[in-house]
């Protein structure tokens, strides 16, 4: 089991451990035509903590994650990784510099095996296939899907699919992991299991996690800080307690329910 652990964390050879302590959005604005999807949002994700990003549908959460991972260029404002400006970085460059993400829709490589899915990222980061397969296998062992390694990914159960998506993002220890509604479509119980598991990631992998999730109870449980978006604007940021007591947030959520 010990070598298992080493394989999980080890970033062999050319891949230096990413050093950045923070992933930061500064006054980010995204406009699609005349429509502002995000207006002047600033937030900071730190290593070793789970940072919650919440807000009603259409609040701009996914757009913000797209900005933080190179899939969407901000109309104005900037994204900083540590002290580095990331302007013009492609998504693969973000990943090479230690910013990993998952997708709401899972987006597994459906015709490939589970092992190949996880391996793909390791290979993308520069490992040879043998080394990539060893590390992918260790990762699958850790998420208890080793028995499914040679199964075609498109045939997995829904909850397993999500875990493979996370394993694919997590391999070779990124500095930041951005999870876009990893529990969407799961039952409350499954959601709690998954999020509890996610909460162990920062310590084990020495990384920061940004978590988008709708289930308020679980997000209040696992997040160190929470940022609330509404209609593309920052509504509030603070500890779970501060957020729960914030009148603007309560109004937004109560208003939504009314």
């Amino acid at each position: 089991m010990q070598s298992d652990e080493t394989l999980l964390h080890d970033r062999p050879g050319l891949l230096a451990q990413p050093q950045a302590a923070e992933l930061k959005a500064e006054n980010v604005v995204v406009r699609f035509g005349g429509l502002a999807a995000i207006s002047e949002v600033s937030l900071t994700v730190r290593r070793h903590e789970v940072f919650g990003l919440i807000g009603p549908n259409g609040a701009g959460k996914t757009t913000l994650v797209n900005c933080l991972t190179g899939f969407q260029a901000p109309t104005s404002g900037r994204i900083l990784l540590g002290r580095e400006q990331t302007t013009g970085w492609s998504p693969d460059k973000f990943r090479k510099n230690g910013v990993a993400r998952t997708f709401q829709a899972g987006r597994l490589f459906r015709e490939m095996t589970v092992l190949e899915n996880v391996e793909a990222t390791a290979v993308g980061l520069g490992l040879g296939r043998r080394a990539a397969a060893e590390r992918a296998m260790a990762m699958l062992d850790w998420i208890r899907l080793a028995a499914q390694a040679n199964r075609i990914a498109g045939t997995l159960a829904y909850t397993d699919e999500r875990r493979v998506g996370i394993a694919r993002a997590l391999i070779l220890s990124p500095a930041f992991l951005l999870l876009d509604e990893p529990a969407a479509g799961m039952s409350d119980g499954e959601c709690e299991d998954l999020v509890e598991w996610v909460a162990t990631i920062p310590q084990r992998f020495d990384c920061g996690v940004l978590l988008i999730e709708h289930n308020m109870r679980v997000i209040m449980d696992v997040c160190a800080r929470i940022h609330v978006l509404d209609g593309g604007r920052s509504l509030a940021e603070g500890s779970p307690r501060e957020i729960q007591e914030n009148p603007a947030v309560m109004a937004a959520y109560l208003g939504m329910e009314a």
Binding site: F71, D92, K96, F103, R107, F109, E111, A120, V123, G124
Partner: peptide, 17 residues
Amino acid sequence: LMLRASREDEVAARASA
């Protein structure tokens, strides 16, 4: 392997470095 991944899902492949 990388090319087959891009065939399956371009967006996810880019996120996979």
